[in-house]
Design a protein around this nucleic acid. Structure first.
Length: 469
RNA sequence: GCCCCCAUCGUCUAGUGGCCUAGGACACCACCCUUUCAAGGUGGCGGCACGGGUUCGAAUCCCGUUGGGGGUGCCA
């Protein structure tokens, strides 16, 4: 493997954040198109949030998006916690060469001193005390004078005045390494050449770059991509927003739709459509073309993308994708009555009516219910007309002797019944629809009847007719 | 407070000095189609934050203002 090495380094918080998912996708596209490597590193140094199943969840979520561990471009996962020794050793090396120093001030000490002197932050008070390691002492990086320029693929050169960056902590009082250090050491150890991550890390980048330089290494190519925000324009967070990718998956969003939508948040595929397949997006994606401003994660647009993808599926694909919902224990019909053949026949009619896969069962339920659940309000509305009885009788008469049980014939039959009663087809179908499907709205009626079959249709019609005076 | 980033329709964006009386998509509205609801078709609404420059010419370049966001931890 000689190509560029990208990395995605999530912390195992229990789910894959949609913002992280986009970052992963962009890294993945770049690694693959450039013949490089995508390294997955789990930043599990926070003991409080570190469970094996959470890591597996992230791997599964990535795989769902197409970021597969069995692809040769994929490497890992590595676990940051397993590199702790290296983190500490590197810190000690920094201390030995004078790039870092020990400090015995506690946060409370610093606060007190700032109060007394009217200053803010850590003022490098222990810089030249020549302190050695000791219990409770933190190791701080000695920020050199000058200016640090971060060369960023998305934003260009960003410069920071080192004088404004305080001597930050490398090792805690208990000796454990801080994120900034661990991150750099890991990236160095894993030969990472490109660090593409969210913009929230931009401000900390000069610190990391200084560590790279202090270590005598060449910093990676940086790329800070814009944040994903909510309607309040704040970065989407677990607290207030629906950020777990897994949740969207479970709600019936398609991976392809999610991938397509995520990719277009801050970037536009070439060509005249935003709907684009992975292959073309991977080929066209460039960090240089990424927008600089935050993007609103719009559920409405995600839904539109999803509908688009659902409509594009073949019935067989639709069945396979929808199977978990169609045969779920909580489906609105006894699961053992679900019939694939019948569903396949109905699929073209319900696909344009689905936003998510979860919508499917509710659109075909009447086909598999032994007794259709009639909505009381719908029944009242559709059968409350003077013609309802006549429609039922007429339909029954027309359908009982129908030689060709097809949508066309069923439609022609009811059209005649409507005509005889002075009703347009739209009106005439209402009572029949409620009697057979339980609702006033749903997929095309005659196709539904065709799928339901003669016996069951007639049975429901008779039952309904008997209910009217 | 200080540092950094950002700024085109409500939203996602195209646009890299003349092709822009600013294009598309989602959303919204209307109409068409129609077997309900969708889908689809057609049309409409709607934007370059503001102020200075630079230039023959600015959405595009520069400066400032305003606004928004991020960072600033012995979190990651």
């Amino acid at each position: 493997m000689t190509g560029p090495r990208y990395r995605f380094a999530p912390s195992p918080t229990g789910f894959l954040h949609v913002g992280g998912a986009r970052t992963a996708l962009w890294n993945w596209a770049l690694a693959r198109k450039e013949g490089g490597t995508f390294v997955l590193r789990i930043e599990d140094t926070d003991e409080a949030r570190n469970r094996p199943e959470w890591t597996q969840g992230i791997i599964d979520a990535l795989a769902w998006l197409g970021v597969h561990a069995d692809d040769p471009h994929f490497e890992g996962p590595y676990f940051q916690s397993q590199y702790a020794d290296q983190h500490v050793a590197t810190a000690q090396r920094l201390f030995a060469q004078g790039a870092a120093y020990y400090c015995d001030m506690t946060p409370a000490d610093i606060e007190a001193r700032n109060k007394a002197e009217g200053t803010q932050g850590y003022q490098g008070w222990s810089r030249d005390l020549g302190l050695g390691p000791g219990p409770g002492r933190v190791l701080r990086f000695r920020v050199p004078p000058g200016t640090t320029v971060v060369h960023d693929l998305v934003r260009g050169d960003v410069s920071f005045d080192n004088a404004l960056i305080e001597d930050f902590v490398l090792l805690r009082g208990n000796g454990s390494p801080m994120f900034l250090l661990a991150n750099v050491v890991d990236d160095l150890a894993m030969g990472i050449t490109h660090v593409i991550r969210a913009e929230e890390h931009l401000s900390n980048t000069p610190k990391q770059q200084m560590i790279w330089e202090a270590l005598g290494a060449q910093p990676p190519v940086w790329g800070h991509v814009p944040l994903l925000v909510n309607e309040q324009r704040k970065k989407i967070s677990k607290r207030r927003d629906k950020v777990a990718l897994e949740q969207y998956r479970d709600e019936g969003y398609l991976a392809q739709a999610m991938v397509n939508y995520l990719m277009t948040l801050g970037w536009t595929p070439k060509g005249d459509s935003e709907i684009a397949g992975w292959a073309s997006m991977e080929a066209d994606f460039r960090l240089e073309d990424v927008n600089h401003s935050p993007a609103f994660f719009d559920l409405k647009k995600l839904a539109a993308f999803n509908g688009e993808y659902i409509r594009a599926m073949t019935p067989a694909e639709f069945l396979e994708a929808g199977r978990p919902w169609l045969t779920a224990a909580d489906a609105p019909y006894p699961v053992d009555r679900f019939d694939e053949g019948v569903f396949l026949a109905m699929a073209p009619h319900i696909q344009p009516r689905c936003v998510t896969l979860a919508d499917a069962p509710g659109l075909v339920d009447f086909l598999f219910q032994p007794e259709v659940a009639v909505d009381a309000e719908a029944w009242a509305k559709a059968t409350g007309t003077p013609e309802a009885v006549a429609v039922f009788r007429g339909a029954l008469a027309a359908y009982e002797g129908l030689g060709d049980w097809s949508a066309d014939a069923l439609k022609a039959g009811l059209e005649a019944v409507g005509e005889a009663n002075g009703l347009k087809l739209g009106k005439a179908q209402a009572p029949v629809r409620v009697a057979v499907t339980g609702r006033t709205v749903g997929p095309p009626l005659f196709e539904s009847l065709e799928c339901l079959g003669r016996d069951e249709t007639l049975r429901r019609l008779r039952l309904a007719a008997a209910l009217l005076p």
